[in-house]
Amino acid sequence: MSTETDTAASGSATGPAPTGPVQEVGEIFDITRFGDYTQLTMVAPGVARAFAPGQFVAVAVGGPRTSMLLRRSFALYGVKPGGEFAGTIQFVVDPHGPGTDWLVGQRIGSRLNLVGPLGVPFPIPRDAVPAVLVGGGYGTAPLLPLAERLLALGSEIEMIVGASRAGRLFGELQAKRLIGKVTVTTDDGSAGQYGQVTDPLPSAIERLGAEIVYACGPMGMLAAVGEVARAHAIPAQVAVEEAMACGIGVCMTCVLPVRGADGVSRFVRSCVEGPVFEAGRVRWADVGTLPADLYGADGMGR
């Protein structure tokens, strides 16, 4: 199966697409609550114009006099490219600290400083291939524009959407409208099937004859999805949810141990080399540690 990293905008845009991320001030157009989450829709034509599924935006928080210097990063979806005075993006905020609490407290019309789109997008097959998409919590968000691109290629797809409980689900209704074939799971059985996303994944792969799995969600879920894909001898492309404090590769807080094509393991930055990785190359058991065989580990441990 051949793939390409498609960096073109998912729609038409006025003027040439930028070759990289842009910094712009966007305006909040709509605020919608979904369970535990807050969805922000923003007018941000520069970010929208160059978007590809899997990329994210880094948002300045706290206002112009804040002591919170680092941006907060959010996966993009619901992107509608447009002209100079149009173009919207959507992202989902799960408030869990001062920065995200401030962000969900903003109002329609508030203006936010944005940098994006950032990161490596999902690789898109050149031809139609059957695929299963697996989202955990708000990790479903970046899979929705991916699903649109795959459907446009003529790919047959199914989606599995899961969370710990009903209030932590996101995107299941949008996915059902878009795809139709959607399985919902919750750890406590409060919505959909009781269990985890990896429970129905093997049967979905076999039923569809899937040639690839795409996933986004918590790290433990991604590791488990990768194992299921490996057992079925198909690749899994996963978008990690590592904390990305700067979003541009400077702060080094989002590093992961990843095996390169040369077989050598190195720390790579999720925000620059990712957030999308081939699951089989991420050393999931070593995340958060300094493996002794990692390239340069002898110097880092001093």
Score class of each variant (00 low, 15 high):
5 T>Q: 08
6 D>K: 12
6 D>C: 06
9 A>E: 05
10 S>E: 14
19 T>F: 01
21 P>H: 05
24 E>Y: 14
26 G>H: 09
27 E>P: 00
30 D>I: 00
34 F>L: 01
35 G>Q: 03
40 L>E: 03
49 R>D: 00
56 F>V: 13
57 V>Q: 13
61 V>L: 06
63 G>C: 07
65 R>W: 03
68 M>A: 04
69 L>P: 00
70 L>K: 10
74 F>H: 14
74 F>T: 05
76 L>N: 11
79 V>K: 13
85 F>K: 13
98 P>I: 00
99 G>C: 12
101 D>F: 11
110 S>H: 12
112 L>T: 01
114 L>A: 04
115 V>Y: 04
119 G>F: 11
122 F>L: 09
123 P>V: 01
129 V>E: 12
132 V>R: 09
137 G>C: 05
138 Y>T: 14
141 A>M: 12
142 P>W: 11
147 A>N: 09
152 A>W: 02
153 L>V: 07
155 S>A: 11
159 M>H: 10
165 R>S: 15
184 V>C: 12
185 T>G: 06
186 T>W: 03
186 T>C: 06
188 D>Y: 05
196 Q>F: 13
202 P>C: 05
203 S>T: 14
204 A>D: 03
206 E>S: 11
206 E>Y: 00
217 G>H: 02
221 M>W: 03
224 A>S: 15
224 A>N: 07
224 A>P: 01
225 V>D: 04
230 R>L: 07
234 I>Q: 10
235 P>E: 12
246 C>K: 09
248 I>K: 02
249 G>A: 05
250 V>I: 15
251 C>Q: 07
253 T>R: 11
254 C>S: 10
254 C>L: 09
255 V>S: 07
256 L>D: 03
261 A>C: 00
261 A>S: 13
262 D>W: 02
263 G>E: 10
264 V>L: 06
267 F>G: 00
269 R>F: 07
272 V>N: 01
276 V>T: 15
277 F>I: 08
280 G>R: 07
284 W>E: 02
290 L>N: 10
292 A>Q: 08
296 G>W: 09
297 A>R: 05
